[in-house]
Design a protein around this nucleic acid. Structure first.
Lengths: 279, 279
DNA sequence: GACTTATCCG
DNA sequence: CGGATAAGTC
């Protein structure tokens, strides 16, 4: 069966509930990871998502900031995690049960909101950057443990707050010292990826020379016109799932750019990836 | 010529600019007094009102609270006033020049935002109620001075924050101790009216037994369904203008109730009064 | 630039 | 309830 995966930093799920519902209606992903829901679990709008067909919902919320939630049409169960070094709500892990006529599998869906990291790309003088690096190290350790348990079928999605490739930013040179594209964080993300042999589905299916962005700042009038974006949002898969993504070709991966010009948009747009699971 | 007068407590003119423009487009009053514009003069949206045909604009603004503005299609000049005992921006006075083929007159247009008066109807323990009473006294003195100067053709509009008659509130009995309908403030308003022989156009044209409301609280879900309103907004005219209003009959006065159920409405609705000026 | 929480005010 | 301000975050 074909599974459609999605991720979106929504920058307040309460304020943009209608936009998420529109996206779900139009794209019908099986599973969506939301980041920056900016609410506590008790404030999360469960009912409208359930009415839209997303029966399975897992939320990690906190007051005012951060927070992640995973919505799914497919049954899933929560995988407990105590994760962020500072105790923020930045990770929702679930095991998704994908049963179809030619399919009886499950996979893990890890929904992450990696810390932005503040302004200065120096962990010595910027605690937030240090936190980002610590978080990446914690991710690495976390997946080492999961693999050691034999959990080898994994999807990682989320706002990683890192644009790793030269063509994941509008200007490699001008962003080399800007947090999100500095060598140190990019290397740490590359190390996490290499250690577990995760596949970045965007770059699996798109040539490295192609510019890909999923985020455009609020802080300029003409960011969309000048297209000064960054690819901060990612979908990664573990080795056993690589071929399931590769088989879909270029069109299996999609950045939903028009969402950035909807009324009162998030600064991020959703991305989707189709993955073919067979038994 | 027939002059259409209007007043509206807009509760933030910046937030409800589109609603004011819609009202002006639909009703085409010659002159509109706005209260609670909640902005400074430099933040006031002059341009869109001028584009809508309201070339003459006078604003008394302050930061965050209160504030009044008068918009007019007819030429008008500002009458300087230092008014509120606490220095709030609660009054815009202008002399309006009404020149038509059968008309060459002018009249004063006084746009007021009388203090709400706080919660407790006791000036001894509630400074805000004292301020309301002081403001009414200041209004009385102000008009005594104007009449002594021979300025006898006057229109007063605004949010008076007082519902004087029994049928200006949904329950006379239940509101007798609620600020806006207490005997003390009602008497002071009646005294202001009697001293200068002002005519309350709503009650000139509508029987005292008729319920009339221009305001419904935000603080209850069903205020419109249960119709628990109050008539806090008024249009008064001086003796020489009484017949100009009376000649228009009941339909000359209108409370624009549907505005209360527009999207994100003010808690007040606009009211309009037609007045026939002849030379 | 645009979210959150909070406090003030009506 | 729903404006405005102010501070904090991204």
């Amino acid at each position: 069966m074909k599974i459609k995966l999605a991720t979106w930093n929504i920058n307040s799920v309460r304020l943009r509930l209608d936009q998420v519902l529109r996206f779900l209606e139009e794209e019908q992903p099986h599973i969506l990871g939301l980041q920056e829901i900016k609410c506590q679990e008790e404030q999360f709008p469960f009912a409208p998502f359930r009415e839209a067909g997303y029966e399975f919902i897992e939320v990690a919320g906190q007051k005012g900031y951060h927070g992640a939630a995973t919505l799914s049409k497919l049954p899933m169960e929560r995988l407990p995690t105590t994760f962020c070094p500072l105790g923020h709500a930045r990770h929702v892990s679930t095991r998704v049960i994908a049963k179809g006529k030619d399919c009886d599998q499950d996979f893990e869906f890890h929904n992450f909101y990696i810390p932005a990291g503040g302004d200065v790309a120096d962990p010595e003088i910027n605690d937030k950057f240090q936190h980002k690096l610590d978080f990446l190290a914690a991710m690495n350790a976390y997946f080492s443990e999961r693999f050691s348990k034999g959990d080898d079928q994994q999807v990682l999605v989320g706002d990683f707050n890192i644009a790793p490739h030269e063509n994941d930013v509008w200007s490699h040179k001008q962003l080399l010292k800007v947090v999100s594209h500095t060598p140190l964080e990019v290397e740490l993300l590359a190390k996490l990826q290499a250690t577990h042999d995760f596949t970045d589905t965007a770059r699996l299916l798109h040539d490295d020379t192609e510019k890909l962005y999923s985020w455009w700042s609020y802080r300029a009038r003409d960011v969309m016109a000048s297209n000064r974006g960054r690819r901060l949002d990612h979908i990664w898969v573990s080795p056993t799932l690589k071929s399931c993504v590769e088989s879909q070709g270029k069109s299996g991966y999609k950045i939903h750019v028009p969402c950035r010009i909807w009324e009162k948009p998030s600064d991020h747009v959703p991305i989707t990836q189709i993955m073919e699971l067979r038994d």
